[in-house]
Design a protein around this nucleic acid. Structure first.
Length: 472
DNA sequence: TTTTGAGTTGTTCGA
DNA sequence: GTCGAACAACTCAAA
């Protein structure tokens, strides 16, 4: 009877899980383990929203295992110490896990692998949650792609995509003594602000599958148009499930492809965001510094130099709380606060407002998102903020400053999204909200704050500040 | 090896 | 109201 330990991290699923699949194929008894090891998280410990999600996702995984007469063994402490103890107690001589891709996680896992192998334990790491692992897709010059379109073309040229693996079944799920209940990890907030999140989300593999089925049925045919409309659920909203590995890009692509064939279409236009999500453009310095010479100069101080401002304020609390006086910005920030999520287009708008109009460093915004998003993902969050701030690795025109009024008129024409998140303004006509700068008294009469900054003037100031930077 | 042209989730201005 | 040009920095891939 051979025994293996499977270490779950951000691959909280049984289906299409190569590491788990391999362990179940090669061994008779499987000990499924989650180790809570806060000391290993370093600078980027999960934020409050992510911890909430993790709590519920671990419970869901435990429940799924219990349907197969197994239980998830939960431990807390140093990962290596816990694994050594569990191997000794269970007789496991092999450990399996899915690879992670953040620089700190790679370093941690490399050290873990070396230590376990020195103990004489087999370690098998498998491709994790990505369609393609970052080092398998490069330009002809061997560099990572910096422009999305060539990257996307190359990826698509390599279809057909891999096929998802079936739900893993161990011949016997093993249980070890001393496992903790999920609640013992203290992941839930002390002050229960999470009611809005519980109403919105079902963390776990089953919840992910259900969301995917809905998306495949309703939204995918219209995705190209409706994904940009924040009032509609035109996006898949699978991002937190993807982040925690409850579902994989391969599974998503496979189901959409299948539905498209049933509908008679040749192939499905899978979204570029799903693909970008799987690209994981990590590099050792991405998360703290930026990669472009002229822009790097700006990022060390602020995303825009603070001309005429003696002391840059900390991350604006009005921005955080959705009280800037700019309707689309406030709607987005309140959606984030209540649900742990924000529509992608609105993320760009609120980020542009913080870094361009308020001229604050993108670090401030990235940190706030990190703490409040249920889908907070180091690569996606960091690179998204750099993209907006104009200091990312991609080729963005420096003059791209979003105009929140124009954006809401274009993408939320009937103001359904604005009114959902700004109920105090629900009685006003859509046009009044899209042209709020013309109607300050109408908004003020509803108790809505005046704009904290003049959009046109701050845009000009931001462009002038950029212009004043010396080129590298 | 060097050059050229497309691409880049936007806005504004003027015809 | 619609449309094209301007803003002007940089990467990638084809020539």
């Amino acid at each position: 009877m051979s025994t293996a330990l499977v270490l779950f991290r951000r691959d909280l699923r049984l289906a299409d899980n190569p590491a788990l699949h391999a362990a179940c194929s090669a061994h008779d008894r499987i000990l499924p383990v989650y180790v809570h090891d806060p000391a290993a998280d370093g600078d980027w410990a999960p934020g409050a929203a992510s911890r909430w999600w993790l709590h519920h996702s671990l419970r869901a995984l435990d429940q799924t295992l219990s349907c197969q007469d197994g239980r998830l063994h939960i431990a807390t402490g140093d990962t290596l110490t816990c694994i050594r103890q569990l191997c000794a107690a269970s007789g496991a001589r092999a450990v399996y896990w899915s690879r992670r891709y953040e620089p700190a996680a790679i370093a941690h896992d490399s050290a873990l692998k070396a230590a376990l192998r020195a103990d004489g334990i087999e370690v098998h790491s498998h491709s994790g949650n990505l369609w393609r692992e970052p080092w398998t897709l490069a330009t002809d010059g061997g560099q990572p792609y910096r422009v999305f379109t060539p990257f996307w073309r190359r990826l698509r040229a390599q279809l057909p995509a891999p096929t998802p693996l079936p739900i893993a079944r161990a011949r016997q799920w093993l249980q070890a003594d001393g496992g903790l209940p999920v609640a013992a990890l203290g992941l839930l907030p002390a002050i229960r602000w999470d009611a809005g999140m519980a109403a919105q989300w079902t963390p776990g593999e089953a919840g992910a599958r259900e969301l995917l089925e809905i998306f495949a049925d309703d939204a995918v045919n219209d995705y190209a148009k409706s994904r940009d409309l924040p009032a509609r659920h035109g996006t898949s909203r699978l991002s937190p499930h993807l982040h925690f590995g409850e579902i994989t890009p391969v599974q998503i692509h496979a189901l959409l492809q299948q539905r498209a064939q049933q509908a008679g279409g040749a192939s499905v236009r899978t979204s570029s965001p799903i693909c970008a999500n799987s690209a994981g453009a990590n590099s050792p310095t991405t998360c703290s510094t930026t990669s472009r010479t002229r822009r790097r100069r700006t990022s060390t101080r602020a995303s825009m130099p603070s001309l005429g401002r003696r002391t840059p304020p900390p991350c604006s609390s009005r921005w955080q709380r959705g009280r800037t006086g700019i309707p689309l910005v406030d709607a987005g920030m309140r959606e984030l606060w209540h649900t742990g999520w924000m529509h992608n287009r609105v993320r760009m708008v609120v980020a542009s407002f913080l870094t361009k109009n308020l001229r604050q460093h993108w670090h401030h915004g990235a940190r706030w998102f990190w703490d409040t998003l249920v889908d907070a993902d180091l690569a996606n969050n960091t690179l998204g903020w750099q993209w907006v701030a104009g200091c990312g690795a991609d080729a963005a025109p420096y003059f791209r400053v979003f105009n929140p009024y124009l954006q809401s008129a274009k993408f939320d024409p009937d103001a359904a999204y604005l009114k959902r998140w700004l109920p105090e303004l629900a009685a006003l006509p859509a046009r009044t909200l899209h042209e709020a700068w013309k109607n300050p008294s109408a908004l003020a009469a509803c108790g809505y704050p005046a704009p904290m900054v003049d959009l046109a003037a701050s845009r000009q100031a931001a462009l002038a500040a950029w212009e004043s930077l010396p080129s590298a």
